[in-house]
Design a protein around this nucleic acid. Sequence first.
DNA 1: CGCGCGGTTGACCAGTATCAACCGGAGTGG
DNA 2: CCACTCCGGTTGATACTGGTCAACCGCGCG
Lengths: 222, 222
Amino acid sequence: MQLAYMQEYKSGEVFVGRGQHLLKQNTTTDHLYTVLGGVMLRYRTLDDGRRQIVNFLFPGDLIGLQSAFDDEVCHSVEALVDSRLCRFEKQDFHDLIVKHPSLGFDITWLAAKEETALESHLVSLGQRSAKERVTYLAVWLLNRASATGMLEDDNRLTLPIKQAQIADMLGLSLVHTNRTLKALSREGLVDWKPGRIRIADIDKAAKYAEVPRYSKNDRPFI
Amino acid sequence: MQLAYMQEYKSGEVFVGRGQHLLKQNTTTDHLYTVLGGVMLRYRTLDDGRRQIVNFLFPGDLIGLQSAFDDEVCHSVEALVDSRLCRFEKQDFHDLIVKHPSLGFDITWLAAKEETALESHLVSLGQRSAKERVTYLAVWLLNRASATGMLEDDNRLTLPIKQAQIADMLGLSLVHTNRTLKALSREGLVDWKPGRIRIADIDKAAKYAEVPRYSKNDRPFI
DNA sequence: CGCGCGGTTGACCAGTATCAACCGGAGTGG
DNA sequence: CCACTCCGGTTGATACTGGTCAACCGCGCG
């Protein structure tokens, strides 16, 4: 646990209320963040207003790694629920990695995991049908949430995700997302009511959406 | 330049002929690789045979970072043209980062860039039409190739990419990919004949597909 | 010469988008 | 306290992008 090092570099805590933004696309930032609590989402907007949610962020996730090497951030980050973050100065980043290499190792670990997640999302968008995508997302969210102890019981997650957000994550229209949710609910595969996801048979759902086996490796928490 | 360190850890060079595999999904590997020359592609296959190409790999890119933390690799890597790689022992990885922190920094850099690329691809798959996707991919490939000096002249790239591969990268059917290529060629936006991409007006194409401004930062070559 | 692979084209179909309208609840101001 | 509005969700009708099936072409190669 690198908490000691981290304290040294931590430059403050940040609270972001539900619906508020931490970062806006095409701006610059001097900070890196780590999610301490809450859930956030990261998205990119095109000029004509189309929006793609790239990923959800859970406690332990790193925000702004890309911006550590590049001036402008190419996505916005918004809180899905009230969230708490740990802030670092970007300029300390090189120093930090060099002085605490095992922390550099953990950061690389997180970056690799994030890449794996994006890869999975990419496969979903590229190859799966609407029903498969929704199921995939539901299972994936339950897995991530479960890893941070956010589940009420084994197959239920309370999280105020709007259908418009599901649509923007999965590359579907809002209307079709709605119909797909209904269909999955009717079939008993995924029961995603406003604000609450429930999956009766998670193995069945995971198999249907071919969600990659959930890695139990402990995620470093920095 | 870390070439000195790298030599110490390098455990060999690997050649992979066009069409041959470096890694196969769901196997394990003891190695990490760096592309020294050539172009490769990384893809994931679903149980029913659907395939998603996740990214193209150019010289300087790292392969297998995810597998450094996770046993099984979740994608296959195949050579698009004859390629040459530098091989490292996975078990040395932690050691390497700790002993040569600035190398850890470069690896993190590469990981962040890879993440940025996947993010862009994700936006394409989620939000763009077939014509936009093809244009996006063409421009992106030209940008990447240009960074490694593979371009014959400013707007032409020779690379034996099959239409089936374009389709699998963009989440389109083979037939529709073919028609889209024709359409773009007719319109003079992108001229993608078998084995050769040519873009008459690259700014126009980049604007049409909203390809993010290409970062000139020098990519570390390890 | 024949085969196979990559590419091309046509006909038809399905999944998903779009447009439009409506519903119910929460907040708000008169 | 009620009317109004806004937001998120729901539903129907219709349009269209892109998928599927099937056939054919040209070329390189054994």
